[in-house]
Amino acid sequence: MSTRPAAGRCLVDLSAQDRLRRGASERAPRLRVLGCPPAGAAAGYWRFLVREDVHVLGVQYPGRESRFREPAAPSIEALAAEAAAAVAAAPWAPAVASPGAAADVPLVVLGHSMGAAVAAELASRLEHREGIRVALLALSAKTAPGAAEVAGAGAGTDEDLWAGLDPQAPGADEAMVRWLRRLGGTPEAVLEHPELLALQLPALRADLRASMAYGRLPAPVGAPLLLLRGTEDDTVDPAGLDAWRPVSTGPVQRREYPGGHHPFADHRDRLLGDLMACAAPGRSG
Results as ranks from 00 to 15, higher is better:
residue 94 P to E: 06
residue 51 R to P: 02
residue 43 A to P: 14
residue 79 L to W: 01
residue 89 A to D: 15
residue 73 A to K: 05
residue 106 P to N: 04
residue 120 A to F: 08
residue 94 P to R: 14
residue 63 G to I: 00
residue 60 Q to I: 00
residue 61 Y to K: 00
residue 81 A to H: 13
residue 68 F to A: 06
residue 56 V to G: 01
residue 89 A to G: 13
residue 69 R to E: 09
residue 89 A to C: 05
residue 85 A to R: 15
residue 38 P to I: 00
residue 110 L to R: 02
residue 90 A to Y: 05
residue 104 D to H: 12
residue 108 V to F: 04
residue 98 S to N: 09
residue 48 F to K: 00
residue 95 A to E: 15
residue 112 H to P: 03
residue 43 A to S: 09
residue 127 E to D: 09
residue 122 L to S: 14
residue 85 A to M: 01
residue 138 A to M: 01
residue 122 L to D: 04
residue 82 E to Q: 14
residue 134 V to D: 10
residue 86 A to S: 11
residue 111 G to C: 05
residue 47 R to L: 03
residue 129 R to Y: 13
residue 69 R to L: 10
residue 39 A to Y: 00
residue 43 A to R: 10
residue 66 S to E: 11
residue 122 L to T: 10
residue 124 S to R: 14
residue 130 E to H: 15
residue 137 L to P: 01
residue 40 G to S: 10
residue 52 E to S: 10
residue 76 I to P: 10
residue 81 A to F: 04
residue 43 A to D: 07
residue 121 E to Q: 14
residue 117 A to N: 07
residue 43 A to E: 12
residue 72 A to Q: 13
residue 96 V to N: 07
residue 126 L to S: 13
residue 107 L to V: 10
residue 128 H to R: 13
residue 80 A to P: 13
residue 130 E to K: 11
residue 47 R to Q: 02
residue 71 P to W: 03
residue 71 P to L: 07
residue 44 G to V: 03
residue 38 P to C: 03
